[in-house]
Simulated scan of single mutants.
Amino acid sequence: MDESLQNSDLVRGSIDTIILSVLLTNDNYGYQIIKEIDKKSQNRFELKEPTLYSSLRRLEKQKMIESYWGEETQGGRRKYYSITELGRELYRKNCAEWELARNLIDRLIRVEKDVEER
């Protein structure tokens, strides 16, 4: 099953948490965040720039991340984002909620083999 998850409501509802997961290991700038998400998803999910930047603005407004300008490079200065302690707490909370929801959904939609064979 090598389908794109581009339009998956489950994925779209987790964009902020996905972005926070990328920022857990390193500060990053927009384009690199998109590339990391593409790599982590094994090319099955492409985060679009408008979605990324609206999430980054929302997360920054909520104090989950902070931004700063990096050194000037060939293409100009890049705006970097770093996760705050509040962002780390939100990431952990969202992951715990995801685990609980995933377990519940698995129980609710799983069909036992004997029922499936009828």
Rank of each mutant, 00 (worst) to 15 (best):
R44K: 13
L56A: 06
V22R: 06
K113E: 14
E112K: 03
Q32L: 09
R110D: 11
E49S: 10
S14Q: 14
E97L: 13
T17I: 08
I109A: 02
S14W: 08
Y31L: 03
F45Y: 15
T51K: 07
D38T: 01
K39F: 06
Y53L: 10
E49V: 09
V11K: 13
G75K: 11
S82I: 13
L20Q: 13
D114M: 00
R58T: 09
E99A: 11
E97G: 13
R88S: 11
Q74W: 01
Y81E: 10
G70M: 01
K93G: 02
A96Y: 08
G76W: 14
R92P: 02
E36F: 00
E71R: 11
T25S: 02
I33G: 03
S41Q: 09
I65S: 00
E72R: 10
G75Y: 12
E72N: 07
Q62T: 02
P50D: 06
Y68N: 03
I83C: 11
I18Q: 04
D114K: 04
P50S: 05
E66R: 11
R44Y: 09
Y80T: 08
S54I: 12
I19M: 03
S82Y: 12
R102P: 06
S54E: 15
R78M: 12
L24R: 13
E66C: 05
G30M: 00
R12M: 12
I18V: 12
S67F: 04
E71L: 06
E71Y: 04
W69D: 08
G30E: 07
S67N: 07
G75I: 08
T84P: 15
N94C: 03
Q6C: 02
I33A: 01
N43S: 14
E66F: 02
N43G: 10
L59I: 06
I83A: 09
T84V: 12
G76C: 10
L52M: 08
S8E: 09
N28F: 00
V111I: 15
F45D: 12
A101Q: 12
E66V: 08
R110M: 05
Q74M: 07
L86M: 15
K93I: 02
D16L: 07
Q42I: 06
I18H: 01
T51D: 14
Y80N: 14
I109D: 04
R88W: 05
D106Q: 10
S8F: 01
L104K: 14
E97Y: 10
Y91R: 04
V111P: 06
L59H: 02
S54F: 11
R77E: 15
R58S: 09
K61C: 01
W69G: 06
M64G: 08
L47K: 07
K39P: 05
E71M: 02
E112Q: 07
T25Q: 04
L47W: 11
K39S: 10
E46T: 14
S14C: 12
Y91V: 09
I109K: 09
G75F: 07
G70Q: 03
Y53M: 11
R57E: 13
W98V: 04
I37A: 00
K40P: 05
D27R: 03
E71G: 00
N43H: 15
S67A: 02
A96P: 05
L90I: 08
K39N: 10
L56V: 07
S67T: 04
K79N: 12
I37Y: 00
L59P: 00
G76H: 08
K48P: 01
K63I: 05
D114E: 08
D106L: 11
K35M: 01
S82R: 15
L10W: 12
P50N: 04
N103S: 11
D114I: 02
S67V: 02
